Structures are given as structure tokens and as C-alpha cells.
Amino acid sequence: MRLAGLQKLTLLDYPGKTAATVFTPGCNFRCPFCHNAELVQGAAPAAGSDESEGGNNEETPYGANAQRGADEGRGADAQCPEDDERNAGAECAGSTSESHLSKQPFPTVSEEEFFSFLDKRQGLLDGICITGGEPLLQPDIEAFCAEIKRRGFAVKLDTNGSLPDRLRALVDDGLVDYVAMDAKNSPARYAETIGVPAFDLSSVEASVAYLLSGAVPYEFRTTIVREYHDEMGLTDLARWIKGADAWYLQAFVDSDTVLAGEGSLSGYAPDELEALVAAVRPIVPTARIRGV
């Protein structure tokens, strides 16, 4: 299992639980607003490319400028086993093939280090959040989750939903207790939003339908970027995920690690974001703002 960082404590990532967050590398989406440019621009090909097999979440700590928590309501990231915490924000994804794992240099954490840390946190932490990148691209994600569960910790999985079979298998095997899935945009603008032309949305549609079935506790989340999201598009997205248990709209925060380049994209002001949430609440009453 390839691990790219560890946040030793989060009170935000796992609803209702004290948790740690572990990061996995690799992404085959190219969301322009992703804060993990140094990860995304590594060796991993984009979904739909000749090298890509998967259709592939939210939402990392791949270097000193890692950004993630602002997109996901996260308070701080530690870049390795050290307690280096910082505000952050990101959205990335991956695919199932090991060839899709980024080979870009970034801090790593060994499984031995990670599980040694967990053993020292028995009775202090309730759960572990597995995020990325796209964790489901990792070929040994099942064994990794099983080892966490064996130690008595609950598991939260962050995903972009492009690998529904792997998601279902983890849930069916009792290896995941909570899922946070990125709902990037309305179907009409999905390919544009994830930076993958002609993206086949069927895999994401399958994951949405699976979560809406109530198989596992879950949330949807959408990072709102002015250049990609408006009231009409968010209303279409709301109709798609109607009945969602929870939907968090997260404010985009610019930084020098954004894939499109700093200054290329912009977020909405808090009052504008409130208006967008008000517009979709008649369809998804559970919609709320996170990260403002």
C-alpha cells in the first residue's frame, strides 16, 4: 500500500469521530481547481487516455505546499509522520491500474510506520480517514482497510466514485463504515470539470445510485468554483443526487498549488455561496456549506 502522508489528528474529516487521515498517491482526473498539482502532474495518466484503464472523488500531502482541507472542511494536514500541520484543500482521483499511480516525488509513510502509529493511538482515536488522490486505485486497499478494522478503528473512505465495483466490494465486506464521495458538477459539465474530455459518466452514476440506496452512511461534497459552477448547474446536480443524506458545498480557495495555476480560478463570496445553497435546498434539504 502506497501512503503519501499522515495527519495524526482531525476533528473534522470523520463526522462525529476523532480520527487520523492517511493519504494515498495517484490521480487520473485533472480537475483544474485541484490543489495537488505536483501529484496530479506526475506519471499518472488522465482518465480516458490511452494509458488509463479506470474512469476515475473531495478533497494529498505531496510536498511542502500541499493543500486540501479548505475544500473538504479540513483543518490541517501533516505531511509525513511528523506533526507538521497546515490549512489545506484539494480534489483528486485515480484509477485501478498500478501504472496510474503517480511517480512524482513526495513524502512517503511506510505501512509499518502507519500501523505503529495506530497501535499507539488505541483508545485515543475512533477512526481512520483514507483519502488521496483516489484511494480505490490502490491494488491492496482491501487488505489495508481490513488491517485497520482488525485494530478496532472505523474506516472512512474518500472517493470520486469512478470505481463503483471496488467501492461496493469494500462496503459489502464490512471494510468501510462511511463514504465521502465527490459530486463534481452537473452531468452536462462533468467531463469539463474533471479535465477529462469525453469522460464516461456511467461509473460515477453507478456510485451515486449505490450510495443513495443507503448501503452505507455517506455524504456527497462539491467544491464550488465560479468558472465551473452556477445556480443552474448546481440545480441539475441536486436533481441527480436528490434524496442524499448529506451534501456539502465547499468553497474553492485559490493557492499557488492549484493545477490551473494561481489566479486562474476564483471562488464565491460567502453570501453568494449561501444563495446557491438556498437555491438547491428545495431539492436536497440536507445541502449545507462547509469550509466557510
Rank of each mutant, 00 (worst) to 15 (best):
A146C: 12
C80R: 10
Q7V: 10
V179P: 10
P45R: 00
T286D: 01
A246M: 06
Q7N: 15
T96C: 02
L211I: 07
A47Y: 01
D50Q: 03
P105Y: 15
E227K: 05
R68W: 07
T159R: 08
S97P: 11
V109T: 11
I148P: 04
G174H: 08
R150L: 12
Y190L: 12
L137A: 01
V155N: 00
C92D: 09
H35Y: 14
P15C: 05
I224L: 01
G267K: 03
Q7M: 10
E112I: 10
G123N: 02
A215N: 07
D236A: 14
L265N: 00
L175F: 13
R121H: 04
S203Y: 03
S207I: 09
T108K: 09
T159H: 00
P135I: 01
G133R: 15
R30M: 11
Q67V: 11
G161N: 09
V155F: 00
N36H: 13
L175T: 03
G75V: 15
P61D: 12
G233R: 06
A260I: 08
E205H: 11
G263H: 06
E231R: 13
V196T: 12
G161E: 00
K120Y: 07
T257Q: 07
V196K: 11
D182K: 06
R68K: 12
L175S: 01
L136H: 09
Q79V: 09
A4D: 04
A37E: 04
D173G: 09
R86S: 14
L11R: 03
C129A: 08
V225N: 02
T193C: 06
D245V: 15
A191E: 06
R288D: 04
V216E: 02
G54Y: 02
E38W: 15
Y178P: 00
P25M: 02
C80A: 01
G261L: 06
V155E: 06
E262L: 07
S97I: 14
R68N: 03
A183S: 12
T108F: 05
I141R: 05
R2A: 02
L234C: 07
P282W: 08
G132N: 15
G127E: 03
G267V: 15
A46Y: 04
L124S: 06
G75R: 14
V22Q: 00
V171Y: 07
V196S: 12
D158A: 13
L101W: 10
A198Q: 14
G195P: 11
